[in-house]
């Protein structure tokens, strides 16, 4: 695995990462990995003790993780949200808008391409799980 790209200022979580079922059985666990197709709402009662949620992207075409990420952010989860697996540079901007703030790609990403991808679109048409102000709001103040 290539190095982890983090867009957070806090220290990287050092706690061991548990699979979802194991995490739920381990009251002291603080980091969890969610596989594609697993139900992130099972984490909702435990959000206060989680420092890291890693969401798996087994294939870049499998977009379930985008909805999982938004469910977590909409439930108030504020810890690190990491996309792991087949994470390609052309997915990064969408992932960022869905609340991901760390990326663990299987293959290394070109830093310049990442910077371009994250700055490409000057506006956003719709509300999502980031700080972007939708265009309709810009239009009407």
């Amino acid at each position: 695995m290539a190095e982890i790209l983090r867009l957070r200022d806090d220290a990287p979580p050092a706690a061991p990462v548990f699979a979802l079922d194991a995490f739920l059985d381990e009251p002291g666990a603080r980091a969890v990995r969610v596989e594609a197709g697993e139900d992130v709402t099972r984490l909702f009662p435990h959000l206060g003790r989680i420092d890291l949620v890693e969401i798996a992207f087994p294939r870049f075409r499998d977009g379930r993780g985008f909805s999982s990420a938004r469910l977590l952010r909409e439930a108030g989860y504020a810890g690190e949200l990491r996309a792991a697996g087949d994470v390609l540079v052309d997915l990064i901007a969408f992932m960022r808008r869905c609340g991901f703030d760390a990326f663990a790609p299987d293959a290394p990403l070109d830093g310049e391409d990442v910077a371009n991808a994250l700055s490409r679109f000057p506006f956003s048409y719709q509300h999502a799980s980031d700080a972007a102000v939708p265009i309709w709001k810009l239009r009407h103040g």
């Binding site: 870049f60 075409r61 499998d62 977009g63 985008f66 909805s67 938004r70 997915l91 901007a93 969408f94 992932m95 960022r96 808008r97 869905c98 679109f121 956003s124 048409y125 719709q126 999502a128 265009i135 309709w136």
Partner: peptide, 14 residues
């Protein structure tokens, strides 16, 4: 059209 253009959650649908 605007709401669904570049929708971040729904750009890699089934």
């Amino acid at each position: 059209r605007q709401a669904t253009s570049f929708h971040p959650e729904f750009s890699y649908l089934p």
